[in-house]
């Protein structure tokens, strides 16, 4: 996606983000800007802080320092209902799906809408649309325990989409799936990216998917973004060791 960045306001702007778990520094001054409609893939070795970075953006994890702006609002300065309102603009797809086990598929998808005051019928309609997009409309009344991992993740994607978010945060959505189901989910993801005009920040190790779907790829290592650029360029000619390793994973 080629845009004139100088004229467009960034959707997300991160400056000097730091985060430590006890004595271990996970993020050490991350700077990142994401523009509306952009699909950004964040790659890096395990434990490099990819998930922490994504969680910090909607404050599921509290950053230690730095600033995170969403739609020009400093979200670290928000709390309570203000933060909740911002979160509703960010869809989040979890590695472990994180579905509410006591609710069926449609209730999982529409829960946030209904709790926030949307009429049940309207919420259901929107929910069904989202489920249809991920190919799960037929299992709207099933419970999470009755679904496969791939299906659960598709429900998770539908739940995030139902909010009609400005930003979709994907935290390794295929990491918990067996290889057969990974393709199923990636397919849905590509479909969503192709269909929705939503800005995406995707954490994944899927190199081929990234080359196909991403506008930009970032490599994160040792708490910093060490390389970034358009997906084709970065994967064709990586400068970092991490980039080179990912390049080697590309199917010829």
């Amino acid at each position: 996606m080629k845009q004139d960045r100088a004229r467009i306001k960034p959707l997300v702007e991160i400056r000097g983000l730091t985060k430590s778990y006890r004595k271990k520094t996970v993020l050490s001054g991350v700077d990142l800007t994401i523009y509306p409609g952009e699909t950004v893939v964040l790659m890096g070795p395990s434990g490099c802080g990819k998930s922490t970075l994504v969680r910090c953006i909607n404050r599921l994890t509290e950053p230690d320092g730095g600033a995170i702006y969403f739609e020009n609002r400093l979200i670290t300065a928000l709390s309570g209902w203000q933060l909740a309102a911002v979160r509703r603009k960010m869809g989040y797809v979890f590695q472990q799906f994180n579905l509410i086990q006591r609710l069926n598929v449609i209730d999982n998808v529409t829960m946030a809408l209904r709790i926030n005051g949307m009429a049940p019928a309207e919420a259901r309609e929107r929910g069904m649309e989202a489920l249809a997009l991920v190919g799960m409309a037929g299992k709207a009344r099933d419970y999470p325990g009755e679904l496969s991992g791939g299906e659960q993740q598709r429900v998770g994607i539908a739940r995030a989409l139902a909010l009609k978010p400005r930003l979709m945060l994907w935290d390794e959505p295929t990491a918990s799936l067996d290889p057969i189901l990974v393709g199923e989910v990636l397919e849905v993801m590509e479909k969503v990216i192709g269909t929705e005009k939503t800005t995406m920040l995707i954490v994944t190790h899927e190199v081929d998917f990234s080359r196909r779907a991403a506008d930009r790829i970032l490599f994160l290592a040792e708490g910093r973004i060490i390389e970034e650029g358009p997906a084709a360029e970065v994967l064709a000619n990586p400068q970092s060791e991490i980039g080179k390793k990912y390049k080697n994973l590309l199917k010829k």
Binding site: L60, G80, A84, V86, R87, M90, Y92, N98, I115, N116
Partner: peptide, 18 residues
């Protein structure tokens, strides 16, 4: 506690009460 569910609730913008 099922922290995954709670985290999901947070990510969906639910209030503490909800």
């Amino acid at each position: 506690l099922n922290l995954e569910e709670i985290t999901a609730g947070c990510s969906l913008g639910l209030s503490f009460t909800a």
